[in-house]
Amino acid sequence: MEQESLDYILVPLGLFVLVLYHAWLLFTILRHPTRTVIGLNAESRRQWIFSMMSDPLKNGVLAVQTIRNNIMASTLLATTAITLCSLISVFVSSTSDSTNTASQLVYGNKSPLVYSIKYFTILLCFLVAFLCNVQSIRYYAHCSFLATVPSSAGKKESMEYVARSLNRGSYFWSLGLRAFYVSFPMFLWIFGPIPMLVCCCIMSFVLYFLDTTSSFTRQLHLRSFREDHAESAIP
């Protein structure tokens, strides 16, 4: 097999592995949320909002401090992403002729166009991470105001709206973090399509254990959720 044809076979195969895994993850989150960490965390945040908003005057400081910590985490990732975007742009513009002296250890297509596509995909990953984290900050900041409104105490519709906003902020944070994860195989693509394919397979395998929950964890959370529902039903 010629080296130039490796990129046309192995790179789409690696991307297909990542897309297939995340399609399965999205299906599982929508149909069986308790089997995933994302689904369990979403329900936990919903219960937390209901607990905090039951008495905003008493729990307001704790709620704002907790949401502020999430804002700081999103700000850190957003700053890192936009900084890496700037560094990649400067690097590409200053080394436009470096692709002609590519190492012989790098298999695959070594044309300048392919190298430009490689750097563009990395840049795109960090831009997506930046935009997702900015949206996450937006939702978190909005929740910090809504969670401390005294008039919302005891109103289930208001609590549900705040819980949805908080979960949307967390979903955007997760998407931004996924963009960082995807940037790893895109970075290894610079060294050839073989490291990129291996990284995609290993990352999908590792993410499976990070995204799914064990039976013990599911039972522990479900028991806690049932207890919360039982306590809220007591007049």
Score class of each variant (00 low, 15 high):
96 S>C: 01
106 V>Y: 09
98 S>F: 06
101 T>C: 00
100 N>A: 10
80 T>I: 09
114 V>H: 09
96 S>G: 11
92 V>R: 14
86 S>I: 15
79 T>P: 02
90 V>G: 03
125 C>K: 02
126 F>I: 07
121 T>L: 14
106 V>H: 08
119 Y>K: 03
119 Y>C: 03
132 C>I: 03
127 L>C: 01
118 K>V: 12
124 L>H: 07
122 I>A: 05
110 K>H: 15
99 T>W: 00
83 T>D: 05
104 Q>H: 02
121 T>E: 11
104 Q>P: 05
97 D>R: 05
117 I>L: 01
125 C>H: 04
95 T>D: 02
93 S>P: 04
121 T>S: 14
81 A>V: 02
122 I>C: 03
113 L>P: 04
131 L>S: 00
131 L>H: 03
118 K>A: 02
127 L>I: 07
97 D>T: 06
96 S>E: 09
102 A>D: 06
117 I>S: 02
85 C>D: 10
86 S>D: 15
126 F>Q: 08
111 S>Q: 07
102 A>N: 01
82 I>K: 04
104 Q>K: 07
106 V>C: 07
108 G>Q: 12
82 I>N: 05
93 S>K: 13
105 L>M: 10
106 V>Q: 10
79 T>F: 05
120 F>D: 09
109 N>E: 15
79 T>W: 02
127 L>G: 01
95 T>H: 08
119 Y>Q: 00
83 T>E: 06
91 F>C: 01
84 L>R: 09
89 S>D: 10
94 S>Q: 13
89 S>A: 15
109 N>W: 12
111 S>C: 04
80 T>S: 15
108 G>M: 11
103 S>G: 01
128 V>N: 11
86 S>P: 06
100 N>L: 08
118 K>W: 09
111 S>W: 02
131 L>R: 04
103 S>Y: 05
120 F>Q: 13
122 I>Y: 00
123 L>V: 04
108 G>H: 13
121 T>F: 12
107 Y>A: 14
115 Y>A: 02
130 F>R: 02
83 T>N: 14
81 A>M: 04
103 S>K: 05
122 I>L: 08
115 Y>I: 02
115 Y>T: 02
105 L>W: 07
108 G>C: 13
121 T>P: 01
115 Y>Q: 05
107 Y>I: 08
124 L>D: 07
85 C>S: 14
87 L>V: 09
88 I>R: 07
110 K>Q: 15
101 T>P: 02
86 S>G: 15
128 V>Q: 07
94 S>W: 04
112 P>A: 03
85 C>G: 14
115 Y>E: 07
94 S>K: 12
92 V>D: 13
82 I>Q: 01
84 L>E: 08
